[in-house]
Amino acid sequence: MTDQPKQLGGGRKMFGDFAPKLAELTDDVLFEDVWNRPELSARDRSLITVAVLTAGGNTAQLGFHLGRAIENGVTQEELIEAITHVTLYAGWPQGMSAMGVAPSSSSQTTSKEHHEHRTLRAHHEKPGGPVRRGRLARPNRAAPRV
């Protein structure tokens, strides 16, 4: 499994100027070391990461990792199936939130574009407000009156 593309992080570029230690750990430990170990392929690590982020309801990180999974050879259909599978074990709200992020992963963008998009979106989102990512995100609808 050593003949796969080297996995690189973008921590220093994203937040190295104000959180240098976290950027160092992201780039040097998480990506340089863990993501490049030969015991699992990058494709397998991507599926695991998507499953864990889905289970934990971590949609802020999920968008980037869905794109990375596609870059690492996971198909859109496999991602949808993985999220569906995790939903039944981790909980409906987590799965539904993850599925709301999944449509954006179908575009063939690079990791750099995912980072830039997420950074721009983070500056425009209201703290505590709903996070809607992806081209197919739907507006919030009021509950039906009974």
Score class of each variant (00 low, 15 high):
Gln4His: 10
Ser107Ala: 11
Gln61Thr: 10
Ala60Trp: 15
Val101Asn: 01
Pro20Ile: 14
Ala51Trp: 06
Phe18Thr: 07
Leu66Arg: 03
Asp27Phe: 14
Leu22Gln: 04
Ala137Asp: 05
Leu79Trp: 07
Ser97Asp: 04
Pro20His: 13
Val50Thr: 05
Asp17Cys: 04
Lys112Leu: 07
Leu53Thr: 03
Val34Trp: 11
Arg141Gly: 00
Val34Lys: 08
Glu78Met: 04
Pro130Ile: 12
Thr110Arg: 00
Val29Asn: 05
Leu120Pro: 00
Thr26Cys: 14
Pro20Lys: 09
Glu71Pro: 00
Asp3Arg: 14
Ala60Tyr: 06
Gly91Leu: 15
Glu39Val: 10
Ala51His: 05
Lys21Arg: 11
Leu40Arg: 13
Thr59Ile: 15
Lys21Asn: 05
Arg121Gln: 10
Leu25Phe: 12
Ser46Thr: 08
Gln61Met: 13
Lys6Thr: 14
Thr26Lys: 01
Lys13Phe: 07
Thr87Cys: 13
Phe15Gln: 03
Pro127Asp: 14
Thr84Lys: 11
Lys21His: 12
Ser105Thr: 02
Gly16His: 03
Arg132Leu: 12
Val74Trp: 02
Pro139Thr: 12
Pro38Ser: 13
Leu22Val: 07
Ala142Pro: 03
Glu32Trp: 13
His117Leu: 14
Lys126Asp: 01
Gln94Val: 06
Met99Arg: 07
Pro93Asn: 11
Ala55Asn: 04
Pro139His: 13
His123Gly: 01
Gly128Met: 08
Met1Thr: 10
Gly91Asn: 09
Gly73Ala: 03
Ala19Thr: 07
Ala102Ile: 03
Pro38Cys: 09
Arg68Trp: 15
Gly129Trp: 14
Lys112Ile: 05
Glu39Arg: 12
Asn140His: 13
Asn140Gln: 11
Thr110Asp: 00
Gly67Asn: 13
Arg132Tyr: 08
Thr110Val: 00
Glu77Ser: 11
Ala60Gly: 04
Thr110Ile: 00
Gly16Val: 04
Val50Met: 06
Glu32Asn: 14
Val50Glu: 03
Gly100Ile: 06
Ser46Pro: 00
Glu116Tyr: 02
Thr109Cys: 03
Thr84Gly: 05
Ser97Pro: 00
Glu81Arg: 04
Thr2Gln: 09
Gly11Ile: 05
Leu40Asn: 01
Gly100Leu: 06
Ala137Asn: 08
Phe15Ser: 00
Lys6Met: 11
Arg121Phe: 09
Ile70Ala: 07
Gln7Ser: 11
Asp33Val: 09
Pro103Cys: 12
Phe64Val: 11
Ser46Val: 10
Lys13Asn: 01
Gly134Cys: 06
Val131Ile: 15
Ala69Phe: 06
Leu25Ser: 02
Lys112His: 01
Met99His: 09
Glu77Thr: 12
Glu116Cys: 01
Ile48Phe: 15
Glu113Cys: 01
Pro5Tyr: 13
Ile83Ala: 03
Lys21Pro: 00
Ile83Thr: 04
Lys126Ile: 11
Thr59Asn: 10
Arg37Pro: 01
Thr87Arg: 10
Gly56Gln: 15
Gly91Met: 14
Ala42Tyr: 03
Ser107Pro: 01
Ala90Lys: 03
Ala23Phe: 07
Ser111Asn: 03
Asn72Gln: 09
Pro127Cys: 11
Ser46Ile: 09
Asp33Pro: 02
Ala82Phe: 09
Arg121Thr: 09
Met14Val: 13
Glu116Ser: 02
Pro103Tyr: 14
Glu78Gly: 02
Gly95Trp: 05
Arg68Phe: 14
Arg135Gln: 10
Ser41His: 08
Glu77Asn: 09
